[in-house]
Write a protein that binds this DNA or RNA. Sequence first.
RNA 1: GCCCGAGUGGCGGAAUGGCAGACGCGACGGACUCAAAAUCCGUUGUCCGAAAGGGCGUGUGGGUUCGAGUCCCACCUCGGGCACCA
Length: 958
Amino acid sequence: MNPSTDETPTDDQHTFRYTGSLAHEIELRWQDRWDAAGTFDTPNPAGPLAAPPNSAGPNRVGPSVDSPKLFVLDMFPYPSGTGLHVGHPLGFIGTDVWGRFKRMTGFNVLHAMGFDSFGLPAEQYAVQTGQHPAITTAANVATYRQQLRRLGLAHDRRRSVATSDPSYYRWTQWIFNQIFEAWYDADQRRARPIAELIAELDAGTRPLTDGSDWASLSRVERAEVIDGYRLAYIAETPVNWCPGLGTVVANEEVTADGRSDRGNFPIFKRSMRQWMMRITAYADRLIDDLELLDWTDSIKAMQRNWIGRSEGARVRFASPAGPIEVFTTRPDTLFGATFMVLAPEHPLVATLTSPDQRAAVTAYQRAAQAKTDVARQVDDTTKTGVFTGSYAINPVNDAEIPVWIADYVLMGYGTGAIMAVPCGDQRDFEFARQFGLTVPAIQQPPAEWFATNGTEPSLDTATWAMAYVGNAPYVNSSNGELQLDAMTDIAQAKHATNDWLVATGHGHATINYKLRDWLFSRQRYWGEPFPIVFDDDGVAHSLPDAMLPVELPPTEGFSPRTFDPDDAMSDPESPLDRLEDWVHVELDLGDGRGVRRYRRETNVMPQWAGSCWYELRYLDPTNEHRFVDRAVEEYWMGPQGEGHPGGVDLYVGGVEHAVLHLLYARFWHKVLFDLGHLSSKEPYHRLFNQGYILAAAFKDEREIYVDAHAVTEHDGAFSFEGNPVTREWGKMGKSLKNAVAPDEIYDVYGADTLRLYEMAMGPLDASRPWETRDVVGMYRFLQRIWRNLIDEQTGAIRTVLPALDDPTERLLHRTVAGVRADMEAMRFNTAIAKLIELNNHLTKLGGCPRDIAEHVVVMLAPLAPHMAEELWSLLGHTATLTYTDFPVADPAMLIDATIEMPVQVNGKVRARIIVASDASDDVVKQMALAEDKVIAALAGTKPKKLIVVTGRMVNIVV
RNA sequence: GCCCGAGUGGCGGAAUGGCAGACGCGACGGACUCAAAAUCCGUUGUCCGAAAGGGCGUGUGGGUUCGAGUCCCACCUCGGGCACCA
């Protein structure tokens, strides 16, 4: 498309007209002044930033720690090589407008912006350009800072952080050590220092779970026991191996179709030794504490869903290979369990497999391992599987039931083994049909169920169309001790079964989670090194604080080793492994063992590490003694009253981090809270998801995207270089070739227009399509404000009208009341509409009285701060508008002497009457019935009913 | 399949159960101009009508109510999330 923005509007006669170039000049000037004066510097109650901000002049009224505080936060960006497009800053502008508004209503507002500069995007960009990531990252951060500054965002620049800065990741490493040196006490439901565990073990008050004697264990054996408790630990577990990226990734980074969310490469489940974080210990609290948060229900639902809490039972089935433990949510169906299914990777499979089945089992296992998760899900109607040749014993009836392996049972969920109840579970039902296994009925389904399926009521499951799941009388479900027959309630039957399981020692009720421990190591270069070394016995030691940070060693060999994306059997290699001199060190860890040889951990932390706590570092960015000062954290994030968990007052970002960043950050925060380092239980008290800016994208006949800038429209048809193209809408970005750079808008209209346009497009939480040709509307609005206040020939202020007329004054107060309420509720689009209405009224007046000019400028300040500051200064004020009080409406001016009320007959408006605003309902009734139009509409019929909604309207029913 | 959202003019959108379409874009007409741009003024849901005026209108079908875009039920469509989770 060819927007009209190609020519900069200029006007020779009107030297002081508000044009793009004047806006540009004003904006740069005010940005410099704000920076020089430290206008947005926010004081802390203690520590290095406690000093009051620079004075901006004698009239400066600055923020104070005695004011109510407000911590406004954006999800910080990762600085990509392509810079910002106009879709990125939508949320940043929203928080800026709100933060500026709150400053004007007396809050001490903290608003800062940092950079998530470690991780794959930065590293991949570096690999592409062949430059070291430290160099490209620094350059990209500088570009972002410049682009964000140009938007006029009121950030405290002193508080900016970058996660790849050693002074930052020193504390990321310190927090890792806190987690490593902690364990979860399930009885107290909180993390405690590992030293307290060791003390309990030493004292013998905490016996070992395997019954062995702590006192008789060797140093290495003790270390193994302790490592089994740590919240950060190394374990051999099934992980997501991505050969295409050359690294393992977390479950949360795998898409629904079994590919990496970065790069879209296939993911293979492989068992590997990796660093894990025991986030599962917090599963309950991560669910329960959602109640305390002001988040949308959909995000809460996504987190609950991801954690996937389900109540059920563990049941042990005897087998030749020893007990096989299963998890089931339906212990009440135990009598219907006629076979078992193990995941192909289940450790007992090898011992269970009989010699005659070995070849088939091994072949099936091999095939399953080579499949990606997506391939395992391709066809969910045809079940595959292999009999192991062994039988297990069903504890309720001592029946011998065959043990199979099948890939519909996942090693990563429950125990990796199930009891199959084909009459009551659709998957088991299909499997039994597929392999001709017996399907006894254990419930008598109701007649309606058969009717819906078009089958005759019968207990012969061969006639059933599907498995039955629901409340129905149990049959064939009793033994000498457990009587389920004749029960009809699932909950009751579950309860009875659970009691029996405990009484007989066959199992117990339990809660299972979908959530898995967090895979925390990556075979990459551009990330935080672990503050961990291994001794000659392979025991892991965290480095003492004095040895932090462990700096990422400079090397030209930063490229990760990647593989054929489909090569499941390749093995990860860490770039840091190649740095022999760095890997091997001699250290005195201060543990009394003197200087010894150690080997460094060569994995790095995942991208998410730095973003797990960055909001805390904004609070106290220069503190060299702690990650954040206690008093400072309590001031900005402490709980505010009973039941308040504390946390950031407003956190704005995209919905895409619903389960990744937001879950990890909550977990870290809770650990730090448990260990006494924080006063807040949750990091983000209020979460707001802004929408996305969508933009038209165009595809040619080959289905290839073409540059949206070069597409032309003619009578609703689109073409590119003379060829027809088709339009679709998508997230703005490089891949759809539809990105619009903010510079394109600054150059033509200025940053204030861009800010206003993005805020006026619609509600902040809604996605909306970008239309460059619409931007001019907000430019015209600013231009009209300017013209109403400024003489375009001389540039002088022209608030000519002497006094306010009554209607204008009433409109002003209505506007003040409305804009204030809209701003508070972040309804910036309607706030802008109200300001436009007021300004359009002023345009009609042909001038602007002084009082009204000041009110307009102050109300405009959060939205278009540069123009507002400029006009404020032209009106003769010397101090910044930043801390000027936002106007408050006079309630008396909101009540009109007379009001116009519509009169409806049967819900249709037939007339309007002007009545005194305090007129009684009776008076209103008489006036309504006296209207000619009403009399005509009634046509002589007597009204059945007459409703007066006081101050609103009249409805006459005939 | 399950769980969240959302459907309003040509477009983005506005409406504590009380005048549907605020505000903006676009379009049309006018003023200014030699002309154009910019600016200013006016019109703009739709149908019938010269007008006055009237009919119909918030995805579809029901319901509650004096009154429904808004609340309830069923359905359709679109967007997002989850999904062989035992």
